[in-house]
Structures are given as structure tokens and as C-alpha cells.
Design a protein around this nucleic acid. Structure first.
Lengths: 201, 201
DNA sequence: GTCTATAGCCAGATAGAC
DNA sequence: GTCTATCTGGCTATAGAC
């Protein structure tokens, strides 16, 4: 029935032309730039170079494509965090690496905000609630909590909430005021804060 | 030409039935709950108890109504801040009063997020940019900066950015995770932080 | 000033030829 | 699998009676 290799790699059956992947990538970008509600399937199809009608071969509804976008973001987050775990042993280094990388996205955030935060905020307003999108904050939140716990902090959860909140809040100011420097300055402060919490021994 | 009294009080000419005000109030609530793009004029008209067609007597376009909503939020912010200025002389007390009041909105924020922050984020994604909505963060930001400056802090602007960012970021986590306690806990931490920065003399 | 009816447009989704 | 043409519904905005 299903191609075992494709199943293992998480691919769908045909997958020759990569249109499905192009559609998801285009949807990620367009939705980040314009928001979920303002982005039409025609926008996404055009950005992906796929005829409108063909979109429905890959995704039954606009919402199905949106779910795929969220899952793609989640997979990206997980692999980023796993890579940081592999590259660094010290929890303090891991935290600084993650938030340094986020701060380096200042220009992107100044233009369209944090892709995950804005998705959460928009989907929050749906009757069904944020659904899977809430994982976009829970995944980094839980990871951050784990790092603080590894540092021996009893208040690891609170610290994690503070850290993610600082990033998300700064991202909102950065995009509203169109000032990437806010993100850079916050990155420096966060690094200092982590050093104060986890002194080099 | 214009009624001088109505002009002084900022009212429009007729203003007998208060429909204009009801429409703006309904728009504020509905937009906060559903977002700008998902909210239709029919939603707003129904919430205000006004027939759809009549909306256009008061507002030429949906966007004109949206601008009125933003201006109403701004006027509310300014009067809140002015009231705090009047009620407290110490900048530290003023800051704690404002952020205590924000933290007390936990339930509301858990349901739909910060009304100003979500408006900014959504309007950021328009081609024209956030426009007037950016004032919704600039006004409290500038006020907060003034308080820190009155406390003698040279880094008043940075501290103000941090404080507003903490509030906005916590609001995003509060609504995404549907947990009003996050807001309460952050309120306590902010009060402590301000006390540490501005020790009672 | 108020309200009904509706025009005009554009989005999501489908049908069906290739 | 691919793509054109089109249906259907809902939204902004207007016309025009009262």
C-alpha cells in the first residue's frame, strides 16, 4: 500500500515533484508576512508556482494546509533544539545559543514579527482556540524549563515563562516599532541574565 | 457650521441616539475577541443592535471604523495614565499601579490576549504597516520611560522597553496557554523589580 | 437619519477534461 | 496527477424608499 521508504522519511506517496513541500514553504512565508486570515489560497499557490485548483489535490481545505504549516514549524523547532542539545553540554550555553539565534533574527522580526507568536495570537482568536499552534510556545517553553532545571533551579518553570515572555514581548515591540535593535539589545540582556543565574564555575 | 458645545466635547453633530458610540464599543469588543480580519461589519452591527446598512451612515468604510476603534483605545490609555499621574506622585508607585492593573486583567487576557498588542500584531501585517495602532504601544512606552527618568535612571528607555515587553510577552503566553495565573505571577515579579530599581527612601 | 434590499466582488471549494 | 473553469456563499459597500 504505502512505500516503506517514503513512510520512514515521513513523505507522502508520490512526492516526485515536491509540490506539497513547495506549497507548505510558500504558505509559511506568506502567512508570516500577511497573517492567516488575509492570506488566500491564491496567494499561496502563486508563491509556490502551483495552479490554484491543484492545491486541493494536496490539501483538502485551507485549514488542512494551515495545520501542515504548524507541524512544519514544530518540526523545525524540535530539530533546532535537538541540534543545540547536541552541540552544547552546559544548559547555560544552550540557553544563550537559542536566544542569541532568536535575537539575530531581528530584521525578520522587525518586518513581520515572530512567526510562531503571531500564529498563536491569531489562532487564539478562533472559536476552537489555538489548537496545535499552542505547541509552538509549549515546545520551547518546556525545553527552556528543562535547561533551568538542569541548572538546579527550583523555579525552573517560572524562569522559562519569563524568558519566553521576554522574547515574545520584545518581538512584538520590534515589529510594531520596526526597530531590530530592540531585539539585539534584549539578546545581550538575556545573555547577561543567564550568566548571573548560572555563574561559570 | 458645527455645534460649538459638541465640538468642545468631541461629539459629532447629531449624536442623539448614541449609535456611533455603540458601534465603536461593539467593534472594540468583537475585534478583541475575533481579530480584525475575521470580524465582519455584520458581526459588529448585530452586537451594537444596529442594522447593517446603517453602519455606513456613521463610518464610510470598515477601515474608518477600525481607526475610530484605535482612537478610542488611545483615548482610554491616555486617560488611564493621566489618572495614575494624578493619583500618585512617586514614579515607582505609578509604575506599580499601572502594571498591577494590567496584571489584574488576567482573565480577560487569557481569553483574547491584550487588546492593544493583538491589534498591533495584526495591523503590522498590513502592507501599509501598523499606522496609528503603533501608538498603542508608544503611548504607554513613553509614559513608562518618563517614570524611569523621573527616578533618575539614565537607561530609562531601555527599562521602559523591557517592562512593556514583559507585559506583552506574558500576555501572549497567558492567552496561548489559557492561564491567567501567569499574568498574576508576572505582576508580582514586576512589582519586586521596580522596588529593587527604586528603593523606598 | 434610518433601514431594506441588493449590487459587485472575491474567497474557498468542486467538477471534470486531460 | 494536473489544471481550467466554475459554483456557491459571504462580505463590503451602495441605492433608494421611508
Amino acid at each position: 500500500m504505502t512505500d516503506p521508504v517514503a513512510t520512514l522519511t515521513g513523505e507522502r506517496r508520490p512526492a516526485r515533484s515536491g509540490k506539497r513541500e513547495r506549497l507548505i514553504a510558500a504558505a509559511c512565508e506568506t502567512i508570516h508576512a500577511q497573517g492567516v486570515e488575509k492570506t488566500t489560497l491564491a496567494d499561496i499557490a502563486a508563491a509556490a508556482g502551483v495552479p490554484l485548483g491543484n492545491v486541493y489535490y494536496y490539501f483538502k481545505t485551507k485549514d488542512a494546509l494551515l495545520q501542515a504549516v504548524i507541524e512544519t514549524h514544530l518540526a523545525g523547532q524540535r530539530s533546532t533544539l535537538a541540534a543545540i542539545d547536541d552541540a552544547h553540554d552546559e544548559p547555560g550555553d544552550r540557553l544563550k545559543t537559542l536566544f542569541g539565534a532568536l535575537a539575530a533574527q531581528g530584521e525578520l522580526i522587525a518586518r513581520h514579527g515572530c512567526p510562531h507568536g503571531s500564529l498563536c495570537m491569531e489562532l487564539d482568536k478562533r472559536a476552537e482556540g489555538p489548537g496545535l499552534a499552542a505547541e509552538l510556545v509549549r515546545v520551547p517553553l518546556d525545553w527552556t524549563e528543562r535547561q533551568f532545571r538542569a541548572l538546579g533551579r527550583q523555579d525552573a518553570r517560572d524562569l522559562a515563562v519569563q524568558l519566553i515572555a521576554r522574547y515574545q514581548g520584545t518581538a512584538l515591540l520590534t515589529s510594531t516599532l520596526r526597530d531590530p535593535d530592540l531585539m539585539v539589545a534584549e539578546g545581550r540582556r538575556v545573555a547577561q541574565w543567564i550568566d548571573d543565574l548560572a555563574p561559570v564555575t
